[in-house]
């Protein structure tokens, strides 16, 4: 565990909590892509199956359980509890265009042809693109509430910090996880355009992110 990894995990947790509290407190999921949230729940489910097969640390187990619970709780808020506020007409990204190639690729390029490894690989690939329905929705409506942009900022920052963690681990431990690193780079690239808008617009005091 190094500082980049720890800050990355904290950033990831902050992002998920921001989103959950935003929906819970405002009793509305307006502007949030339910599809992205379902994909993230699927990411955690397929990645954390090792909760049943290997114990790494208390920290690892607790974080995995927290991520799983919060991701399903968020999906529950969007599709059941506050369903009437869900903007399904703007959430029109075709997720099968992500799921099919990601599933195919995880069968082709993995560390071991076993169910748990393939599902882990699937989760890594899927995570890198899971935010696309949300970004697509913002592009479509042309705006996002600032709280939603804070969520996206921390979610993007998390993987960027993991990149620093992988550079650190490569130099200190010789650790190199090719699948995670390549996917992590792809994932971070998707956020770059958003990071630029976040810094130039939201942090300058605009109450909303409006696209030019």
């Amino acid at each position: 565990m190094n500082v980049f990894r720890l800050l990355g995990d904290v950033s990831h947790l902050v992002a998920i909590i921001i989103l959950f509290l935003k929906i819970f407190r405002s009793k509305s999921c307006a502007g949030i892509s339910g599809k992205s949230q379902v994909l993230f729940a699927l990411v955690f489910t397929t990645r954390y199956l090792d909760l049943f097969t290997s114990f790494i640390s208390i920290y690892n187990t607790v974080m995995k359980v927290v991520f799983l619970v919060l991701s399903y709780a968020t999906v529950y808020l969007i599709y059941l509890r506050f369903r009437s506020s869900y903007d399904s007409e703007s959430d029109t990204f075709r997720v099968e265009f992500l799921l099919v190639p990601v599933a195919g690729l995880s069968f082709l390029e993995n560390y071991d042809f076993t169910p748990i490894e393939i599902l882990w690989t699937f989760s890594i690939y899927l995570e890198s693109v899971a935010i696309l329905p949300q970004l697509f929705m913002i592009t479509k409506t042309g705006e996002a509430e600032s709280i939603t942009t804070h969520y996206l900022f921390f979610l993007g920052l998390y993987r960027a910090l993991y990149l620093a963690n992988w550079v650190w681990r490569y130099h200190t431990e010789g650790f190199f996880d090719q699948i995670a690193v390549v996917s992590g780079v792809v994932q971070t690239i998707f956020y770059c355009d958003f990071f630029y808008l976040y810094v130039t617009k939201v942090l300058k005091g605009n109450s909303k992110l409006t696209l030019p």
């Binding site: 990894r5 790494i56 640390s57 882990w120």
Partner: peptide
Amino acid sequence: HFGSCPKDEL
């Protein structure tokens, strides 16, 4: 090493 098993990252 290449790859990671068991996975210690989240």
